[in-house]
Computed example of a mutant assay.
Amino acid sequence: MAAFLLWMLLLVFCWPLALLALVMYPIVWLLCLPLRLVGITVGAVFAFLGAVLMLPARVLRGRPA
């Protein structure tokens, strides 16, 4: 709600900048989408590698002595 009110204030005081922000937001979102997908993929790869490297420790810790 606060973001909407701030946008409305920007529209009242500086409407060309507000309209530019309104037009540019979807374009910037589309440009950032591949970077977000790469970030998700890299995070998943690191999580997988961490799970693979910690597997022997989990197996040894789970074995009764």
Results as ranks from 00 to 15, higher is better:
Leu9Glu: 14
Leu19Thr: 10
Thr41Arg: 15
Tyr25Pro: 11
Pro16Phe: 00
Phe13Ser: 05
Ile27Glu: 00
Met24Glu: 07
Val42Asp: 11
Leu19Phe: 06
Val28His: 09
Leu9Lys: 06
Leu55Met: 07
Leu49Met: 02
Leu49Arg: 11
Ala21Trp: 06
Gly62Leu: 10
Arg58Gly: 15
Val12His: 01
Gly62Arg: 15
Trp15Val: 05
Cys14Lys: 13
Tyr25Phe: 04
Arg36Val: 00
Ala57Ile: 08
Ala47Ser: 02
Val52Tyr: 06
Thr41Cys: 11
Pro64Asn: 12
Arg58Leu: 13
Ala47Lys: 01
Phe46Thr: 08
Ile40Val: 08
Phe48Glu: 11
Ala51Asn: 05
Ala57Glu: 11
Cys32Trp: 00
Val28Glu: 05
Ala21Arg: 05
Val12Thr: 03
Gly62Pro: 02
Leu53Gln: 10
Arg63Pro: 08
Phe46Cys: 03
Val38Met: 03
Gly43Trp: 01
Leu17Asn: 12
Val28Thr: 08
Val52Lys: 13
Gly50Gln: 06
Arg58Ile: 13
Val45Lys: 08
Arg36His: 09
Val12Asn: 00
Leu22Arg: 15
Leu20His: 03
Phe48Thr: 02
Leu35Ala: 11
Pro34Cys: 11
Leu53Trp: 06
Trp15Ile: 10
Ala57Val: 01
Ile27His: 09
Ala47Thr: 01
Thr41Lys: 15
Leu49Cys: 04
Ala18Trp: 04
Ile40Arg: 04
Met1Lys: 14
Ala21Ser: 13
Phe4Met: 14
Leu10Pro: 01
Ile40Ser: 04
Gly43Arg: 12
Leu30Asp: 05
Val23His: 11
Cys32Val: 05
Leu20Trp: 07
Ala21Lys: 08
Leu53Asp: 06
Met8Val: 02
Gly39Phe: 00
Leu9His: 10
Phe13Leu: 04
Phe48Cys: 09
Trp7Val: 09
Met1Asp: 14
Trp15Pro: 15
Ala65Arg: 15
Gly39Ile: 02
Leu55Ile: 06
Ala3Ser: 14
Val42Ile: 13
Arg58Thr: 15
Gly39Leu: 01
Val59Glu: 09
Arg36Trp: 01
Leu6Thr: 08
Ala65Ser: 12
Val12Gln: 10
Arg58Lys: 15
Gly39Val: 00
Leu31Lys: 03
Cys32Tyr: 03
Val12Asp: 03
Tyr25Glu: 08
Leu35Met: 05
Val52Pro: 02
Leu10Lys: 12
Leu22Met: 08
Leu11Glu: 14
Tyr25Ile: 14
